[in-house]
Design a protein around this nucleic acid. Structure first.
Length: 292
DNA sequence: GATACGTGGGA
DNA sequence: TTCCCAAGTAT
């Protein structure tokens, strides 16, 4: 079963959320910033950070001129702070190598730090109106249901997923809106947890036609967060974000008392990732503190 | 292909 | 309260 573009586009025009990075005046850089922030992070949490961010650093060169520490602080508790570091590095590359203009071709975009298959195509599509497939988790789920009649998407495969969406893409200038609509439908109607099929505009959904069969593969258990290195890293970084001055080892140690080996490992990984630096006197600070 | 990588809100 | 999961990327 396929997806009728007209149904999807009409629904999108009626029901889509008014998100600022979708406004025509946003421009490629601010769209790029939104894409980094939206990687694995809900719109509601991104919105306030994005608004402050693009007002403060409206261009790649403005972003590149900021210190890494300021960038990490502005990122706040959005999560996965390596994204902030990569965004900062990306800004420098675009400022230095691309004349402060976000490149418009997928191949060049893919060379930027933090830009993978999804983000490269999202920028080409939404910032430059190119008819390239854009595949995120929402799109994969909508296609799995509406086209394949399955409750959930199978394991991701970039090659396979791109090909599946490519055949659905309208062969005209509506392609970018079609991709945005696919993502929007997955986000607010064809949701993972409780799909609102009563509100779905698609009159030909294979999953519905099959009587909404449940997933056949057992749900994969995501790893617990409590007690992981990720949680320890988060705690350590939170201390560093909150201090304008370098902190002592003891100030970091108190955030994780239960497993000192794990705490040491977490701190070391932050140093390796370049998110944290050690000062000459042995204290610790956010990377690039004092730069810019 | 599997795994590491933050955080917080809703069911 | 616990569990799920949210516009992925890099290794």
């Amino acid at each position: 079963m396929s997806i009728r573009a007209a149904e999807l586009l009409d629904w999108y025009d009626r029901e889509h959320r008014d998100l600022p990075w979708r406004h025509p005046e946003a421009g490629a850089w601010k769209i790029l910033v939104s894409e980094y922030m939206l990687q694995q992070t809900p719109v509601a949490r991104v919105l306030p950070i994005w608004l402050e961010w693009v007002a403060r650093w409206p261009t790649p060169s403005a972003t590149a001129a900021a210190s890494a520490a300021d960038v990490l602080r502005a990122w706040g508790k959005l999560g996965y702070p390596r994204r902030a570091k990569r965004l900062h590095e990306c800004a420098r590359v675009i400022a230095d190598d691309y004349g402060d203009v976000v490149p418009d071709d997928v191949e060049a975009l893919l060379t930027l730090p933090g830009v993978g298959s999804y983000t490269a195509r999202a920028i080409a599509c939404f910032a430059y109106q190119q008819s390239v497939p854009v595949v995120d988790t929402n799109v994969r789920r909508v296609v799995a249901r509406a086209v394949d009649g399955l409750a959930d998407a199978g394991p991701p495969s970039t090659t396979r997923d791109l090909a599946a969406v490519a055949v659905l893409l309208p062969d005209d200038s509506t392609a970018p809106r079609f991709s945005a609509a696919l993502m929007e439908l997955g986000a607010i109607v064809c949701a993972a947890r409780s799909p609102k099929c009563g509100l779905c505009p698609l009159s030909h959904c294979a999953w519905r036609a099959a009587g909404y069969p449940p997933a056949t593969t057992p749900p994969k258990r995501g790893q617990a967060y409590a007690g992981t290195d990720r949680q320890v890293r988060g705690r350590l970084l939170d201390v560093l974000r909150g201090s304008q001055k370098p902190v002592t080892r003891a100030q970091l140690d108190i955030v994780w008392l239960t497993d000192t080996a794990q705490r040491d490992r977490a701190l070391d990984s932050l140093l390796v990732d370049g998110l944290v630096e050690q000062t000459a006197d042995g204290r610790f600070a956010l990377a690039g503190e004092g730069d810019g």
